[in-house]
């Protein structure tokens, strides 16, 4: 980590949809190569923070920096190669009429990258999908298989920052284990930075160094992931979440 400036830096970020504020005063930094988790109540605005980071939630105020660049109000081509997102819902995030091959080739076509065949095959191998899935349509695959395609798509452009919105919540434990191992391996190999949204605290414990707990649109606590070992949280909501997840048992 020669570069000391953080990958993601948020100061007092407020985000609204159609004038209704759903996220308030979010402040945190994610260092280069760090893996940072965002956990919390359903509907508390976790996905919204990720969307704002890549320009899909344009109504934000405050300061936001991604890889040294000022924050975006709409997605942009240059940023696409450096920062990618995996969506929460593997059913909605794949075009119903495109084959896996078309989905994975598209980013290459947009950015004029060659060697498409090899790269697509390699991406399938990377996420542990058999070659015979290459020309299937989404409806011919199970939920977990689709999510792997979505992860492969995000990796096609070899980004530095990955925004992961519950990448494994639709997956069974054995595939979840594979994907978590994969994410860990990719991070080690390519020095990726992760901002991971999840509601599964054990996943945080496995993959992340630090975590922020969100509740009702605010961050209530930022803690080291090691706090999960002993439950040393201070905020009452964090403690309740920890207890409900089966901590201290």
């Amino acid at each position: 980590m020669t570069d000391p400036s953080p990958s993601i830096s948020l100061r007092n970020l407020d985000i609204a949809y159609g004038g209704v504020r759903v996220v308030q005063g979010v402040t945190f930094d994610v260092a280069r190569g760090e893996s940072f988790a965002l956990v919390g109540e359903s509907g508390s605005g976790k996905s919204t923070v990720l969307k704002a980071l890549c320009g899909l939630a344009p109504e934000w105020t405050g300061t936001m920096q991604v890889l040294g660049q000022p924050g975006l109000h709409r997605p942009n081509r240059a940023m696409a190669r450096r920062c990618q997102m995996v969506f929460q819902d593997p059913y909605g995030s794949l075009h119903p009429r495109k084959t896996v091959d078309a989905v994975l080739s598209e980013p290459l076509a947009i950015h004029g990258i060659g060697d498409r065949d090899e790269r697509v095959e390699q991406a399938l191998v990377d996420v542990g999908l058999d070659r015979r899935f290459r020309f299937r349509y989404p409806h011919q695959m199970s939920g977990g298989q689709r999510q792997r395609v979505a992860i492969a798509r995000a990796l096609m452009l070899e980004p530095e920052v990955m925004l992961l919105d519950e990448p494994t919540s639709a997956l069974d434990v054995s595939v979840q284990a594979e994907i978590l191992n994969l994410l860990k391996r990719l991070r080690a190999e390519r020095g990726l930075t992760y901002l991971l949204v999840t509601h599964n605290l054990p996943v945080v414990s496995f993959l992340c160094e630090r975590m922020a707990v969100m509740n009702k649109g605010r961050i209530v606590e930022i803690a080291q992931a090691t706090a999960l070992h002993d439950g040393s949280f201070t905020d009452p909501y964090s403690l309740a979440l920890y207890a409900a997840s089966g901590g201290n048992r």
């Binding site: 069974d172 434990v173 054995s174 979840q176 284990a177 978590l180 599964n200 605290l201 054990p202 996943v203 414990s205 496995f206 999960l228 070992h229 997840s245 089966g246 901590g247």
Partner: peptide, 11 residues
């Protein structure tokens, strides 16, 4: 095998 693949809180 399925059981072993579940990550633990004290991972």
């Amino acid at each position: 095998g399925l059981l072993a693949a579940v990550p633990k809180m004290h991972e």
